[in-house]
């Protein structure tokens, strides 16, 4: 049902955890639906994502997409990161089963929420 790449990211997820004093935090989903993704960002003065971590409650696809998005954005500028779509994350994993495309493929949304959080905090400074 899942590609090898999905299983690899599920079994050995990259960048799991939290960042202390993050520059941005984004969370999407809710426990009622069975998926929550939370992404933490550390952004440097050049608007480059220096570090990124995630925590996810959800199925294999939810965990794998979270892991994949962190791998895709590390070292990228915020502008580059904002261009990443949920579909791009799924494609990078070699695809997801059709029924997972909607419910569990929210990692890019969580990333965008984290970037927006960073922007709004920065704007307030």
């Amino acid at each position: 049902m899942y590609t090898e790449k999905v299983m690899d990211h599920f079994e050995n997820p990259r960048n799991v955890g939290e960042i202390e004093n993050p520059d941005g935090v984004g969370q999407v989903g809710n426990p009622t639906c069975g998926d929550i993704m939370k992404i933490y960002l550390k952004v440097n003065d050049d608007n480059v994502i220096e570090d990124v971590k995630f925590k996810t409650f959800g199925c294999g696809a939810a965990i794998a997409t979270s892991s994949m998005v962190t791998e895709m954005v590390k070292g990228k500028t915020l502008d580059e990161a904002l261009k990443i779509s949920n579909k791009a994350v799924a494609d990078a994993l070699g695809g997801l089963p059709p029924k997972k495309m909607h419910c569990s493929n929210l990692a890019a949304d969580a990333l965008q929420a984290a970037i927006e959080d960073y922007m709004s905090k920065k704007g307030k400074k």
Binding site: Y2, M7, F10, G34, D35, F57, G58, C59, G60, A62, I63
Partner: peptide, 9 residues
Amino acid sequence: FIEGESMLL
């Protein structure tokens, strides 16, 4: 705190 399919996998 955890989801069933992740446990099954």
